[in-house]
């Protein structure tokens, strides 16, 4: 480790870290906002689900590198424009979360759904006031996976020259110099860890009833949340 280099490069590293933060976080926020209505539709209309799941699976097979390079042509943006990275990662996030949202809504117990219907909820209000809050732990687990993998994927954009922590990897590789690479890896790990903790905290704040359930008997959604952590990227299913 060359500490003097780190010291001299600190402002640049800090700047790249900042870039990395918003390039990882923004796609999750946009992706989540898009996934909720799409996932809810896939949950509600069974026929929509297989094509959506297949589409999501196909999206995941597109190498991020290819997406970073193709998008400028499709969007009319410059190759170095960070927008390309945001759009590409939003696509991956949506691909992951649409399934998670649909599956999470499946975990809402049928008697809860029936009770809401019988009390006269209209569909949209029921989704917002009952279904989504009950499904929140599972959706949250999916958001954690999406966020952590985004942090890693953003780095690949360094190959096309968009500056962020990944730039330290290409720089170190070209200069045959390990220090920047290690700094970049540590930066990514720290960022992933901090974002993950923040999401866990947010989920806890949003679902106080989950802890209440654990005192008594294990809530179904708690078990389901555990499950969602297991779910990797969506798969191709015909």
């Amino acid at each position: 480790m060359n500490w003097a280099w780190i010291d001299s490069q600190w402002p640049t590293i800090w700047q790249e870290f900042g870039q990395h933060v918003w390039l990882s976080v923004l796609p999750v926020l946009i992706g989540l906002l898009l996934s909720i209505p799409i996932g809810a539709l896939a949950h509600r209309y069974g026929w929509l689900r297989p094509p959506l799941v297949t589409l999501a699976g196909l999206t995941y097979t597109i190498p991020s590198l290819a997406l970073f390079v193709v998008l400028p042509g499709l969007l009319g943006t410059k190759i170095l424009d960070p927008i390309n990275v945001v759009v590409a990662l939003t696509l991956y996030t949506v691909a992951l979360l649409v399934r998670t949202v649909a599956d999470a809504l499946d975990t809402v117990p049928d008697d809860v759904r029936q009770a809401a219907l019988a009390m006269g909820y209209r569909p949209v209000r029921q989704l917002l006031a009952v279904d989504l809050p009950v499904a929140a732990p599972v959706i949250g687990a999916g958001v954690r996976v999406a966020t952590v993998s985004n942090v890693s994927l953003v780095a690949i954009a360094a190959l096309i020259g968009v500056p962020q922590l990944g730039s330290l990897f290409t720089q170190g590789f070209q200069e045959d110099f390990a220090t920047p690479i290690i700094v970049g890896i540590v930066g990514c790990l720290v960022l992933a860890l901090v974002l993950d903790l923040l999401i866990v905290l947010a989920i806890r704040l949003l679902t106080p009833w989950q802890r209440a359930g654990r005192i008594g008997r294990r809530g179904r959604s708690a078990a389901a949340a555990e499950l969602a952590e297991v779910v990797g990227p969506a798969e191709v299913i015909g």
Binding site: V148, V151, A155, I156, G166, F169, T170, I185, L189, D196
Partner: peptide, 12 residues
């Protein structure tokens, strides 16, 4: 392991 950036790991 999920959080380890593949590109960084590869170059290192």
């Amino acid at each position: 392991l999920r959080a380890l950036p593949s590109l960084g790991l590869l170059t290192l």
